[in-house]
Amino acid sequence: MSIESLGYKEWEGQKHGRFYKVLSLVDYEVRHAWSSIWVKILIIIAWLPVLIIFLVPVTEISEEGVDRAFYNLVSFTTSITIWLPIMAGLIGGGLIANDKNNKMFSMYFSRPLRREDYIAGKVGGFAVLMSIPTIVPALIIYIVLIGKSDLSLLVFIKKSWLLGAAWLYFILLIALFGSLVLFLSSVVTDSKYAVVGLFTIVILSDLIANLLWLASDNEIYRLGSLTFNLENILAEFLGIDQSTLQLADQQNGGVGGLVSAWKSLVVIVGITSFMSVLTLLRLLSLEEE
């Protein structure tokens, strides 16, 4: 078709505001990530417990076995801690690094798009993607448990704090890994380095903290390990001891022993806040090119 025959057409229509643009960016990022086969595989793995709970008969559960039933839900949530960094790296590593590499900043910011809104869109996309294998299946497992068991609804309402706690734990995890991976993504030139960086941080922090702890015999050094802190929080607030995948012995004060889970929480929230501010500052100062 020749150009001349068509001619330039003008366009007239309504333009939406900033909130719409943020949502559009979230929508785009979710679809784009979803087109990756690895993301699909990881999400399917995360949904396996949901399938299992559909298959396993839970109608037999007695009132006494109710904790056991919830253990299904909760053991699923704990398994998240292990591969959630993988997922975060895979999804978050390229979020900013790819735009930087592709010089997409000049495409985005030569439009009426605020930097804050760009950041909100990226964070939103990340949060939505990360909640697909965490928050959503946890809810489904919980609902399936109610539907399949003969227990009265009252028992489930009484136990619903477990679901709430699991969700809070997920939000904490998503925020922590999100802030770390987005910062890494904004400084590296290739998304692979962001993934590698995230793992290095997780593994190194654990290694160094444990070495210091063993060398000095001072429990406080354990707070330097990300995984320890997460397990400690999980044990205290959800009653799950991840290292043995059993319900934690509450009398022993979770896995932390002498180290209070509140201290772990402060460390995790502190790291998350610090990394978020760093990422924000970094993104606001990045050049267009």
């Binding site: 087109s35 790819n98 592709n102 997409m104 495409m107 030569s110 009426p112 090119e289």
Partner: peptide, 25 residues
């Protein structure tokens, strides 16, 4: 812009559409 700025792994329609939405369309 003078230099290449593309998301290579999406098609041209998606790309132009995405940027149009960033204009609020």
């Amino acid at each position: 812009p003078e230099h290449d700025c593309f998301i290579g792994d999406i098609d041209a329609v998606k790309y132009v559409m995405h940027l149009g939405r960033m204009n609020g369309m």
